[in-house]
Simulated assay, not measured.
Amino acid sequence: MVKWFDRTPRDVTRQLLRHHRVPVVGDRVLLQDVRPALVPFVGQALGLELDLVAKAGRVLQAAPSAEAQVALSEVVRILATRATAFARILEGEGVEAQDAMRPFADSTREFSKLIAGSDWYEELLAVHVVSGLLEDFFVAVVPGLPEDDQDAMLRALRGESAHPQLVKLLLAAIEQTPRLSDRLAVWGRRLVGDALLQMYLAVNGPDDAGRAVPSQQRLEPAFNDIVASHTRRMDELGLTA
């Protein structure tokens, strides 16, 4: 396993957020250099997306206002549509969705526990942060898939975005309760580290076999742009990443 991922999520996050630009040294690995196998790649993406659908559904149920419920119903619909698109890709490969997700079931279940917030606000931020990070990551890796499969995956990932609804809800919550800012900023940093571990599984598989990265020692800089995009999303909320 890459030494980077032997560190705690907090260690990983701290280092990545400290440097948004990494000098190019030699043949630096880019995410488009990754060559994942299609079925496990989509299977993990589907499992994670379904978990986000379930989380968004719980946030919807606990929403403090009818306006928030309406916005969150759109979030659930958008995430569920993406999950359906992933399932159809697997169907086109003649693979049952549950079979493709099964190798990642334990890691997805553990990830779900790690990103469980202590209240409605943290749960809402978790949906926003994790969906954004994973979308950016999967889009970056798509060029490494077989050419015939790239378009369908990009259509699934680049369809409707729940970003506007989530940002509006979070900004309203922070404006109403300014003291949330510090707590949500800390929670956002924690979420990044946990999401990065899921990205590692997408690159190398659940059992660390069949590695897809040509030079593991140079994997870390490849995630820099993903974290930089996350930082911009946090800045949009007035939260320090």
Rank of each mutant, 00 (worst) to 15 (best):
A97S: 15
V76H: 07
A105V: 09
L90E: 07
S107G: 02
A105F: 09
V95N: 06
A100N: 00
L90Q: 04
V76I: 12
I89A: 03
A97T: 05
S73V: 04
F111N: 04
R82V: 00
T84V: 05
A71G: 11
A68W: 04
L90R: 01
A63E: 10
E67N: 08
E110T: 03
V70D: 15
E67R: 06
V76Y: 07
P103F: 08
G92P: 03
S73D: 13
L72N: 07
A71L: 14
A63H: 05
A83Y: 01
A62R: 04
A80H: 13
T81H: 09
A87Y: 02
M101S: 06
R82W: 06
R77P: 03
E74V: 06
F104N: 03
T108C: 13
R77E: 14
F104Y: 10
I78K: 08
L72H: 07
D106C: 02
A62C: 08
V76A: 12
A80R: 10
A66T: 14
R77M: 12
A66M: 14
E93R: 03
R77Y: 11
R77W: 08
V76S: 11
I78P: 01
R102E: 15
R82F: 06
V75P: 01
G92C: 03
V75H: 09
R88Q: 15
R77Q: 14
E110G: 04
E67I: 00
E74S: 14
I89E: 05
F86M: 03
R109D: 15
F86G: 05
Q61L: 11
R88N: 14
R109S: 15
L79G: 03
A83F: 02
T84P: 04
G92H: 00
F111H: 02
M101R: 05
R109A: 15
A71M: 12
E74H: 11
A63N: 06
A62E: 02
S73P: 02
T108L: 10
R77T: 12
Q98S: 13
M101G: 03
V75T: 10
A97R: 04
E93P: 07
S65L: 09
A68V: 01
A83Q: 06
T81L: 11
V70E: 14
Q98P: 00
V95H: 04
S73Q: 13
Q98N: 11
A62V: 06
T108Y: 03
A100S: 00
E93I: 03
D106K: 07
E74T: 07
A68D: 12
A66V: 15
P64I: 09
R77C: 07
S65T: 13
L90P: 05
G94C: 05
R82H: 09
R102N: 13
I89S: 02
R77S: 13
V76E: 13
I89Q: 01
V76R: 00
M101A: 10
A105S: 15
E67T: 08
A62G: 01
E91T: 04
A71H: 11
A105M: 12
A100V: 01
E110M: 01
I78G: 10
D106S: 07
R102W: 13
T84H: 06
